[in-house]
């Protein structure tokens, strides 16, 4: 590997390790490093390659993935993570295991969760190289798994409480968007399950700090807010009118008649 690549790599490592990393500078270094990786054919490794170089390449990409999270650039994280897939899946038997592999895999799972891509979430989960019953013992993986389970069964307060128990610093970056997802979920449940709610209870149910925020949210969803009685009423969806779908029935009956004609 070229020497300047080595020095850049050391610089990046130093930057990543320091507590108040200069994100902008890291971005610049990462950009240079990626060009270096491409020219030395390590970004998408093919054929015979030096495994030590590969481990370094993996390191760089991992740092890049973390960097994207810190800069809140989810699409960039997505790119870094898909580049890392090769290292995690195809070269797993040649390279020493990376300590950052599972945190990153966990982050990827949370990302899928916040984007509400549940099907992808499960596919990714299945393809983890871990036996299924040991998933729960890996803190980085069990966190998204629990989140998903609670979301699915509706234990939203557990999700809310778990937001601060993230196994790694970077997990918290997803908390905000996750909370947004949850609020929308809760709101749609409340709509269906309640006639009206006192504003105070509504605020706690939907995890807002102040009533003002809650009221603003309620108005945003076009619910009736009664400020005097401090009550929020949910617009009743009018009783669905029972209408006979005439055209559909006629079409269906004609189709049956035609088919029967063919049979008899």
């Amino acid at each position: 590997m070229a020497t300047d690549l080595g020095s850049l790599y050391r610089e990046l490592k130093g930057l990543f390790g320091s507590p108040h990393a200069d994100l902008k500078k890291m971005g610049v270094v990462l950009g240079k490093l990626k060009i270096g990786l491409v020219t030395s054919g390590l970004l998408v490794p093919q054929g015979d390659v030096n495994f030590q170089d590969l481990a370094v390449a993996r390191d760089i990409l991992e740092i890049g993935a973390f960097w994207s999270i810190r800069t809140r650039d989810v699409p960039s994280f997505d790119r870094y993570f898909s580049q890392l897939q090769t290292f995690y899946n195809d070269y797993s038997s040649f390279l020493p295991p990376s300590p950052r592999e599972y945190p990153l895999r966990g982050l990827n799972l949370i990302r899928l969760l916040t984007q509400n891509r549940i099907a992808d979430f499960h596919t990714t989960l299945e393809s983890l190289p871990l036996p299924a019953d040991s998933l729960a013992s890996n803190p980085f993986i069990s966190h998204p798994i629990n989140l998903e389970r609670w979301l699915m069964e509706g234990s939203y307060s557990k999700v809310w409480n778990a937001r601060l128990e993230a196994p790694a610093e970077e997990y918290k970056f997803f908390v905000d968007s996750l909370m947004g997802t949850i609020r929308n979920e809760i709101a749609s449940c409340l709509e269906a399950a309640y006639d009206s709610l006192p504003t105070k209870d509504f605020t706690t149910l939907i995890f807002f700090e102040t009533e003002r925020e809650a009221v603003a949210y309620a108005q945003h969803r076009k619910w009736e807010v009664d400020l005097i009685n401090k009550k929020i009423s949910f617009a009743k969806k009018g009783e669905e009118k029972l209408e006979i779908p005439k055209e559909k029935l006629i079409a269906a009956n004609l189709a049956y008649a035609r088919e029967l004609e063919q049979i008899v």
């Binding site: 509706g154 809760i186 449940c189 399950a193």
Partner: peptide, 22 residues
């Protein structure tokens, strides 16, 4: 608290019919 959310979700998903009186 969990129960309230879970029941609410069940109502939304159409598993049961009903209302919660908070």
């Amino acid at each position: 608290e969990d129960a309230e959310y879970i029941v609410g979700k069940a109502i939304r998903d159409g598993v049961i019919e009903g209302r919660i009186v908070h």
